[in-house]
Amino acid sequence: MAWERDPSAPGVRTYGSAGELTWGACPAAGDLAEWSDDSLMAAVVARDPAAFGVLYDRYAPLVYSTCLRVVGEPAAAEDLVQDIFVRLWQRPEAFIPARGRFVTWLLSITRNRAVDEVRSRNRRRKRELPEPEDAPFAPIATARGDDPVSLAELREEQQAVRQALAQLPPEQRRVLELAFFGGYTHQEIAARLHEPLGTVKTRIRLGMQKLRAALERLR
């Protein structure tokens, strides 16, 4: 499409202040890879496959890693990545910019979809989640050993999240990891850690309070 290379042309969509799609102002012209997430999503709403490809390149590593962390099997994680991005292409209007940033929305649906998948499997067979390591939020083993996240802003956010988690007491990190990546309920975490239910609830509550204070600016 003509506006792919000239986003200032009439008809380009971008987001108004209320977060609704509007016609008019446009992202800065230039390489699609430099466009903001919101601008790329506006282009995806207008069925631009190139914008979709850029979003995939930008976030597939994060989505894949989260899925892999939850389901523990590369093949299943790939299926989930496909499912999540296909849905994103088919229903991009599900993202409402006024409700928050694209990356938190995408990671939220990724984690929920992956946990749904693992819970659905567990109904069919005994849970075989990768056991969380001794160190909470331990790295996923990777043959490459590199970090494919390309955006500087994302790298900074990763650093901030890791730092916030590092400041939590280990037992609070542990319950949050079991809840987030394991998809376990209060009761399941208590049974798994052989701790009273009230203790688990308190650790989650305190952990979330500290994370909220530390990560306020990222949301």
Partner: peptide, 20 residues
């Protein structure tokens, strides 16, 4: 929105190139 940020914690692994 807050909880989604936890996905940023572990190091990131690239998916297989063929997946795209």
């Amino acid at each position: 929105r807050l909880i989604a940020l936890l996905a940023l914690a572990p190091p990131v692994q690239a998916p297989p190139p063929a997946l795209k």
